[in-house]
Design a protein around this nucleic acid. Structure first.
Lengths: 186, 186
DNA sequence: GTCTATAAAAGGATAGAC
DNA sequence: GTCTATCCTTTTATAGAC
């Protein structure tokens, strides 16, 4: 999991994994027939951890559902700062690294995105009364994901978290515009 | 260029390149000392082509500067549709595939993003009179890039262009909200 | 500048004893 | 289930003739 995150799938060799996990070749291949089976297991672990390992920790002490969305994004910001802007979303990185993923891999990448989006969408629906009646909560949750992935990509490429901050600020403005649909005309 | 786009950098072997280009090993290494030098040349070509190969064709026959932004995004949509949603932005894919790029590579990735953003920002500034006086055109152009990259990532992972369409629609709503800042109160 | 042949290393995966 | 040794392929890059 760590190696695929830090180096990517293709650049992580079996030898890397054996060394990092202090395991011998025979043992690894006893449980995982091939390298791709490791990837599948990793993606399943990420998928199963979206709630307990990602969303719930980010939402500790944050009750307002809309603020929970931004608390989640703040977690990515912290990861960027703590890694000197070398952090990458493991799912996003794998999604773009693997150009022709086998069906089960692609399905798991999609399941990971879907889980993230569903978590954010749930927040927004919990605040439905503050949004216009025709608000598209699914599209808004997808926008949050796109802003996060794009913001991380830019911040990492430019080695400057300000790119991520501007992305989040635009999302904030978008939400604010929806949540205050009526402005006094002058 | 084509192979790095279709297969990524790591998954493209020198043998692939020799075969595709009908060139022999000796000739290739005469001009390019190593594989990374090919990557650098490719990224330079993308950077130099942003105007003539990407923006200008997308803007043919589109005069309204704001619509030019969406015409550019429509080009990515077309690429997605024409490739059955296997298209990926070559720069975005490389930016996420390469986890620890050497300085010149990272600089060129950043230069490519910067060129794209600058082109969009110029459009928005050309329509400055329609935006509020405090509008952050740079942040808006970055948002457009993030929406594009995120939308392509989602559409490709889910093999469904609707994900891209929703992303663009949210950007449109964001722009509309800015460009019509005064709504009649009821 | 280009050709063929090949070096040298790293890659994923397997064999067979224990 | 785990160990070591190793097979076989692919990979990047080079050598040296032309």
């Amino acid at each position: 999991m760590e190696l695929f995150w830090l180096k990517g799938y293709g650049s992580t060799s079996i030898a890397d994994i054996l060394s990092r996990s202090q395991v011998n070749s025979g043992s690894l291949y006893y449980f995982f027939p091939g390298k791709q089976d490791l990837l599948i297991a990793v993606l399943e672990a990420y998928r199963d951890g979206i709630g307990p390992m990602l969303l719930e920790p980010a939402w500790q002490g944050v009750d307002d559902p809309v603020e929970r969305v931004f608390a989640l994004l703040a977690g990515y910001r912290r990861a960027l700062v703590e890694t000197d802007c070398t952090y990458g979303c493991p799912i996003g990185s794998l999604a773009l690294e693997l150009h022709e993923p086998d069906a089960p891999v692609r399905a798991l990448l999609a399941a990971n995105f879907q889980g993230w989006i569903a978590g954010v969408e749930e927040c927004l629906r919990a605040a439905a009364s503050r949004f216009p009646p025709n608000a598209d909560f699914h599209a808004l949750a997808e926008l949050a994901l796109n802003v996060m992935e794009g913001g991380v990509m830019q911040a990492r490429t430019f080695r400057d978290v300000a790119h991520f901050d501007r992305a989040v600020e635009q999302l904030r403005l978008h939400f604010d515009a929806l949540m205050q649909p009526m402005v006094e005309s002058k």
